[in-house]
Design a binder for these strands. Structure first.
Length: 560
RNA sequence: UGACCCAUGGUGUAAUUGGCAACACAGCAGAUUUUGGUUCUGUUAUUCUAGGUUCGAGUCCUAGUGGGUCAACCA
């Protein structure tokens, strides 16, 4: 069978296929993912990772992991570890060992001297303030630095002095000699090197001058032979700088291509703001399940496959976008529906006494683990005279379309019997304490000859055999889809105080025992959950990943 | 008083590169259902504006409008 529709290509794929057709780089494709090791990876990085790795894979190429570690003041080894873990968890493996921009410090230094020798770079003694003021504005050209006209020899000597630690931090910089009147401000003699007498996480005290992004990134691409250097739109103004160095240095011509970063409703990715959430304890850490970090989403129970599907479905283009959280959750549900084992958990238990079930006896019922996957097998569920059901699954005075337990009506217990509700007992405040029902002995699941067809089916657990567990219910971190929309209101004002609700007294069927954290379950009729790392064999803790689609809730209580 | 990027249903992305505007998610309606889940069927809704080129424009040209980005010794 052949696809009738021609596969549509995104704009980067079109560029690559054109390059391939022209025999560029002999058909070799090499991309790279270049994180700065100064923070945790988030949903936006996931998209960048997906694009770089999937594109290379599609065209028979490879992808490098390169840490852009040119700023010793902010970068730490801790992040190097977490970033690698996150990428691998997402399902990708880079070519060979991880690479570092710092591996190229020696080569970069030589490049700088070459530029100086060609009269294309100079040492500037101006203060940061002076450099800023001479830079001009977007609408006014800058003015030349008084040091711009230094001789090649003097520049070489001074630059070597910078490298040898002869000058204090911030006293001098090396700048490219381009054009202070360029309409693109990045072309107004960008700074190449600054003096920082700081310990670097990999090169230690070998260097006291460190290259800036513009003099490290493109050159690193070139050194590695990256064919397609894919980055987000905000780097578009850097492309002329990127190309200028390649041309003047006469090095391998990597090509920078910019795509629009992915934004998602209710998520923020600003490092500063995420840090605030962590530091000021709005969340429990970088891996709090409410965080948009990969570690947070992983702990929340989002499968890597769902994230990959999400990246694929959101596409690659150049216009600003905000993806509905809907789509993400749809991808997560779709994946988990196929893979998650079903389990019965009652979050807000209320006891049901089945009055015609013989006292002191019990039986074992069989329950399929996943109706979407018979190979997942079956498990045993004990059943007896007393069970728990969800408090909200009982109403004394129910509207006509209420298909759950209500006096005088029948309801099915999943994998068990049909119950006829007789009534309930209440305490002095009118709170229902116990529900009474009778069961139809001939209505057992799988061998039901009762002929009764109740509208509703409930989840339940045996009152005596079930165990108590903790369930953490997560909701969106913010009360509005775009907490940054109003520049006059700090995003923290939109923090959702109800984003975490902890249930301490949930009842879980005895067959579900402590296994690896991240094991996924679908709690019947409630949603998808996974075992949290805080669990032990004595105390199970679950995180809510995402709820089931709930068309009933929408019908009875339409929320704005 | 600048440069650059972008503009297609509610959201996102397509349109064989100038030839019937479609796919997914969301919405709505229905069928099925021992999960008010899943699945299935149907359905609502789209080319920023004004000119121009053309037999024909979402696509090309011009102007405008709207949105975004750029002035760290950050990346």
């Amino acid at each position: 069978m052949q696809d009738e529709r021609k596969e549509s290509l995104n704009f980067i794929e079109q560029i690559i296929e054109t390059d391939l057709a022209n025999g560029k780089h002999s058909g070799r494709i090499l991309t790279r993912f270049p994180p700065e090791p100064n923070g945790y990876l988030h949903i936006g990085h996931a998209k960048a990772i997906w694009i770089n790795f999937e594109l290379a894979k599609k065209y028979g190429g490879k992808t490098n992991l390169r840490f852009d570690d040119t700023n010793p003041t902010t970068e730490e080894t801790e992040y190097v570890e977490s970033i690698q873990k996150d990428i691998q968890w997402l399902g990708y493996q880079w070519q060979n060992e991880p690479l570092y921009a710092s591996d190229y410090f020696g080569q970069l230094y030589e490049y700088a001297k070459k530029l100086i020798s060609k009269g294309l770079a100079y040492v500037d003694d101006s203060t940061p303030e002076e450099i800023a003021s001479m830079k001009g504005t977007p609408t006014e050209p800058g003015v030349d630095s008084p040091y711009k006209s230094r001789s090649v020899e003097e520049n070489l000597t001074l630059f070597e002095g910078m490298k040898n630690g002869e000058f204090p931090d911030g006293s001098r910089v090396l700048r490219a000699n381009i054009d202070m009147a360029a309409p693109n401000m990045l072309m107004r003699d960008p700074i190449l090197y600054r003096i920082k007498k700081e310990n670097h996480h990999r090169t230690g005290d070998d260097w006291c001058i460190y290259p800036m992004y513009d003099f490290a990134h493109g050159q690193s691409d070139s050194i590695e032979g990256i064919t397609h250097s894919l980055c987000s739109l905000e780097f578009i103004h850097h492309r002329p700088v990127y190309d200028w160095f390649i041309e003047k240095l006469e090095i391998f011509p990597s090509r920078q291509i910019e795509f629009a970063r992915m934004n998602v409703e209710y998520m923020i990715t600003s490092k500063r703001r995420l840090l605030k959430l962590v530091n000021e304890k709005y969340v429990t850490g970088w891996d709090d399940p409410r965080m948009p970090t990969l570690s947070g989403m992983r702990r929340k129970g989002y499968p890597a496959a769902a994230l990959r599907t999400f990246c694929e479905k959101t596409g690659v283009a150049k216009r600003d976008n905000t993806i509905e959280i809907n789509l993400l959750e749809s991808c997560v549900r779709d994946e988990l529906n196929k893979t998650a084992l079903r389990a019965m958990v009652v979050l807000d238990p209320i006891k049901v006494v089945i009055t015609n079930y013989p006292e002191g006896t019990s039986e074992i019922l069989m329950a399929e683990n996943n109706p979407e996957d018979v190979s997942a097998g079956e498990r045993q569920m004990p059943f007896s005279r007393e069970i728990y059901i969800e408090r909200e699954d009982f109403m004394e005075d129910a509207p006509p379309k209420y298909f759950r337990m209500t006096p005088g009506k029948d309801v099915r217990l999943k994998h068990a019997y049909i119950l006829h509700c007789e009534g309930c007992e209440k305490d002095e405040f009118g709170l229902v304490t116990t529900i009474y029902a009778t069961y139809y002995p001939n209505s057992k699941s799988g061998s039901d000859v009762s002929g009764i067809k109740p509208k509703g089916t409930l989840h339940w657990v045996d009152a005596h055999a079930s165990r108590t567990c903790e369930v953490r219910l997560y909701d969106r971190l913010f009360t509005v889809s775009d907490p940054l929309a109003d520049e006059n209101t700090d995003f923290i004002n939109f923090y959702n105080k109800d984003s975490l609700q902890t249930v301490h007294n949930a009842k879980i069927e005895p067959g579900i025992v402590f296994t690896d954290p991240l094991t996924h379950y679908q709690f019947f009729r409630l949603g998808y959950f996974c075992i949290d790392q805080d669990s032990s064999s004595e105390a199970l803790v679950f995180n809510k990943t995402v709820g089931l689609k709930d068309t009933f809730a929408k019908e009875v209580k339409p929320t704005p």
